[in-house]
Design a protein around this nucleic acid. Structure first.
Lengths: 214, 214, 214, 214
DNA sequence: GATGAATGAGAATTCATTCAT
DNA sequence: TATGAATGAATTCTCATTCAT
């Protein structure tokens, strides 16, 4: 899934094994990072958690930061794939957007911890890896941009061209918001209510000001 | 300003001195945390940056985490005070909301680094301190809730009661978004454009669909 | 050539193969040891350099120190054989000594890196291996002793018997000196000049003090 | 004594204390390096040997290599100072040279282990430090050059100008030879015999061949 | 109150060697 | 015979915190 874990060199040459072991590492490390954060997690803990000896683990990575990169990359890939497959089943236009938002919010809720992790630890990645991760984020955002564009084209959504990108970002953020404001939101709304309200508000914005809002 | 730094015990008893030294610590540490993150900053660096010896610094705090708490508390207080004083000049209702949003966004942009810092390091706070910081965040959010309520009361804003709190959170998040998505947004919009568009979208939501759409 | 690599046990029994593989190991390791020193070279690097897998390499040695021993032994054997074949062509007496010195210095210059290696890493050999290597050094030294003795016998060299061994050692060291002082000597003399001067000085010593020096 | 240990930064600022602690470190490390070599000695062993905690030791150095530098620098300084003070008492010309050689050999014998250490571990120094150490070696060598020049000037030594530098290097090396060939020489000569013979041989060289050899 | 030297537990990473295939 | 993945003890270095002066 995360095709680009190839970027990280490993001592072990067997590609299949590398992929398998890295999945182990990702699984173990992700749990720990979510629970304790990247810096509070030691490499020995990661090794223990994923059932490898410390030496073996280091045959598959070069540094602790590599583990963070693997984890972030994995989460983004997972997000992207889930969202893409969700959007595939989605119709177009206004109705499609409604479904897409619901799927997005559902994915965010399901991967709440992981999303939070990305938001808090991405800055700990070394420069190049960070750029890569941000690019991934932008790709995902553009999925929503496309949906909006299709809606505009088929006339079910009315939106000024200059705010299409902004709306896409807004949708992304309102989804993520469920994870990083859950301490407040969970007491106020269920995910369903949250989704319903936000969707209504967002759709409200997709009516051209002149005909709708004025 | 940060009345609650009193929570943190200090060896030194002279209240005034404690306050002065802690301001030094906050200033130095904040810079460093923004640049390198909490975990990558050492206590020695903090001491050097704020012009105290490491021993002296420890007369005014009990642990490195205390410094993070002081910094987070300071940033929240600063945010709150700036926003409050900005809102004081603000009229009420629809127009007031417009101004409030603009002020909020301006404050976010000005304190961009600090806001980012809070979002990335709050989770490193020990339990109690974190609750305190989150409470502060909720207080600030409720400032917007009040504005919305006033607007509803004076009839310039139409909003279902069940989404008032949600709208307040949304406004908060759309402001913060300028800081944590600046890597993408800065290339698309100036702060002024961003503010204008988001305000338009938000106001668009404050008209009840049924009556407003007409 | 290095008959005594037999001392080191190997899992593989085929004598020929053992000899072939060990030559590979020596070649690869020698390069690396010269470049990085024994301790800074890893067994993995040695294996890679000599085209064997790490597992295979360990079929032919028992420990990393064995590799050092093989290398040191090889270098000494090479030195001895080159010097011996050079001395074979050499006449006797004063003239023979002159040629022998020139050959010795030439060999030292050609094997500069290897000689340096021996001087810096011999102490890393385990006790027994070190004794063996030192014995080899003594054997080579005695080649010069013999030349001197022959010169004394044929009357072309005049030298007090008590300093014959010393002179032999001196000749050895002045040759090696070209390698371990090259950082200074290369700036002062070419190898030819160096050889000419040292030879003159040495021959000057081979005149009995009573008749010559007084 | 080793004025240039200033080159190595230390966390501790008190110059006097730094000097004192570094003397401790040098003493302990030197012993260990002589016994086991640089690479086989651990930082913890060094710390224990010199009576500091590992943490404290690292307040006075930046890396293990710094310790090697301190040790090498110390040995060179010691050599230089001993030799200089020995040479001060020395007359000039032929007789002066005789005494200088004796002093030099005595110092070499006394500091046998240290000299050996330098010869075997200098290559482990990082580039700049190595250059510095080699410069020191050259300075010491030039002390002998001066003695030779004085002898030539006052007519008690006859030596072609082109071999003066070479002779100086030879004297240096013949002294060091007592340390790195002691495994062979100790069985053949006492230090006194060794000194007497080598001195005779060297002085023999300081008579111009044409006039002397007749 | 201020200082800064001392401490040592703990962290990341390496690497010689083994052994199942 | 050949391979290379697995191992974990050992190593260097860091850093929050303390405490004697």
């Amino acid at each position: 899934m995360s095709r680009d874990s190839k970027r990280i060199p490993s001592v072990v040459k067997n590609r299949q094994l590398v992929e398998k072991r890295r999945q182990q590492i990702i699984r173990g490390a992700c749990d720990l990072f979510v629970r304790k954060g990247f810096h509070r997690t030691t490499t020995r803990e990661i090794a223990r958690e994923c059932g490898l000896s410390i030496g073996t683990m280091y045959e598959y990575i070069q540094s602790k930061e590599d583990v963070l990169y693997l984890v972030c990359d994995h989460i983004h890939s997972e997000l992207e794939s889930r969202l893409k497959s969700a959007l595939a089943e989605t119709g177009s236009g206004r109705e499609g957007l409604t479904k897409a938002i619901a799927q997005h919010f559902r994915v965010m809720a399901e991967m709440s911890d992981d999303v939070l992790l990305i938001y808090q630890e991405t800055k700990s990645l070394p420069g190049e890896a960070m750029s890569y991760v941000l690019k991934k984020e932008e790709e995902i955002t553009s999925l929503f941009e496309e949906i909006l564009q299709r809606g505009i084209r088929d006339g079910t959504l009315t939106l000024d061209p200059s705010v299409v990108k902004l709306m896409a970002h807004n949708i992304m953020v309102l989804g993520q918001m469920w994870t990083f404001r859950r301490w407040a939101l969970k007491g106020l709304y269920t995910l369903e209510e949250y989704t319903r309200h936000q969707t209504a508000l967002l759709l409200n914005q997709c009516i051209h000001p002149k005909t709708g809002g004025k």
